[in-house]
Amino acid sequence: MANAETALKEATTVIDGALGAALVDYTSGMALGAIGGGKDLDLTVAAAGNTDVVRAKVRTMEMLGLQDDIEDILITLGTQYHLIRLLKGRGANGLFLYLALDKNRANLAMARHQLKKIESELEV
């Protein structure tokens, strides 16, 4: 079992092409932890903005009457992939992992697989 800091460190070192990662509370839009980023990628802004993305999808599913959960969300940009993975399990409700990847260096299938593993081992 890993804590938030270790999990984020693992996400940015193990996953090829990682630009930055954050653990975000989408009930408040604030990051519990963030690593990487820098001036090209402000992770505080990303945490707040992607909270709106997750909330919109949750609301859409409610309106569609879908009795299901979001596992992850993929956003493909011209040069980057953004992966959002919602946390499951006890005490981890209302949190998601956010990972930004360089499209040229990343392997999407592998990144998704690794993020899933990191998420399953994360204890908040």
Binding site: S28, G29, A48, G49, T51
Partner: peptide, 8 residues
């Protein structure tokens, strides 16, 4: 409210 966005 999204407090993160509120702050920004």
């Amino acid at each position: 409210v999204n407090v993160g966005r509120l702050h920004l």
